[in-house]
Simulated assay, not measured.
Amino acid sequence: MKKYIYFVLVAMLFVSCATSMSTGLTREKNYPKMYTDKPLTILVMPPINKTVNVEAKEYFYTSMMIPLCEKGYYVISPFLAMDLLKSESAYDSELFMNANLSSFNKVFGADVALFTVINTWSKSTLGNVITVDIEYILKSTTSNEILFNRKGKLSVDTGVNSGGNGGLLGVLVDMAASAINTALTDKVIAARRCNNYVLHDLPDGRYAPMFDKDQNVSAGGIEFSGTVAQ
């Protein structure tokens, strides 16, 4: 009986590995146009906020620049861009999502514009989780083609574990600490975790050591679902 169970487990593992290998995604398979266009300069557009949390737009907008710079791209300062976009009545990215983006190339010198759509942002104190449903769309300002696109749901776990064995009392202490931690969680940090998770798949830019060498690097799905620690 034990031998039978052993062989079944080995067979299941083999099938699982074979499936993973056969469906292995790479950055080039997911985002081939990133390697043909080789964009350098990114303009971060104000996020499109479809939630009741009016501040969600700012959480993501102010936390997008660093992960993009770390990927090797030149990012136009969001703060300087914001002033110009507002003065030109271009603060609402919804107006440009499906429009011709050539003006952003002429005015900002941007090769691509990054749009984000925040579909949901919910915070559960009892569950110690911030849940975000979001989509990232990177579009060329010359061809208007989508070069990079990922969408899905992420949960930012803000739970606290004391690591002790205090029985029921220890559980209650952890629950109380987690509730406080979630209530005080810096929402910008939660947005930054989401940005880091999603943009990790973005092929490296010209200022990164793996520029045009990471075609075969494993990539996640274009549609994702996961949990990230705070």
Rank of each mutant, 00 (worst) to 15 (best):
T62L: 09
T36D: 15
F96M: 06
D92M: 02
K139G: 11
T41A: 07
S93W: 06
T116D: 05
T120D: 13
L84D: 01
Y136C: 05
M64T: 03
I48Q: 02
K123Q: 05
P67A: 05
P47V: 00
I146V: 15
Y73F: 10
N100F: 10
L80Y: 11
F115I: 12
I146Y: 09
D92A: 00
A110N: 06
V129G: 01
K106P: 00
N100L: 03
N128E: 09
T125I: 15
L43A: 02
K86Y: 08
Y35S: 03
V112P: 04
Y74A: 01
Y35Q: 00
V44M: 12
L80K: 04
F96C: 00
Y91F: 13
G72T: 14
I137H: 14
L126V: 07
D111K: 00
S122A: 12
D37L: 07
D92E: 04
Y74Q: 07
F115K: 13
V54T: 11
K86T: 06
Y91G: 03
A90V: 01
T41K: 14
N144I: 10
N105S: 15
M97N: 01
F79G: 12
V44H: 08
I137E: 05
M64I: 06
S77H: 07
D111S: 07
I76C: 08
V44N: 12
I134C: 11
M64H: 09
Y61C: 07
A99F: 04
Y74E: 10
A81W: 04
T142E: 11
L40Q: 14
K139Q: 11
E94V: 03
S140N: 08
L68W: 04
E94C: 09
D37T: 10
I42P: 09
C69E: 15
E88L: 05
S124K: 10
L84V: 13
S102T: 11
L101N: 01
D133Y: 03
V54K: 12
V54E: 06
E58W: 01
A99R: 07
Y91D: 00
F108D: 04
V44I: 12
I130Q: 02
Y35R: 08
K38G: 00
W121N: 10
N119P: 15
Y35V: 05
S77G: 14
S122F: 04
W121F: 15
M97W: 05
L85E: 03
S140Q: 04
M65C: 02
F96A: 01
G109I: 00
I137M: 15
F60V: 02
F79W: 12
L126H: 08
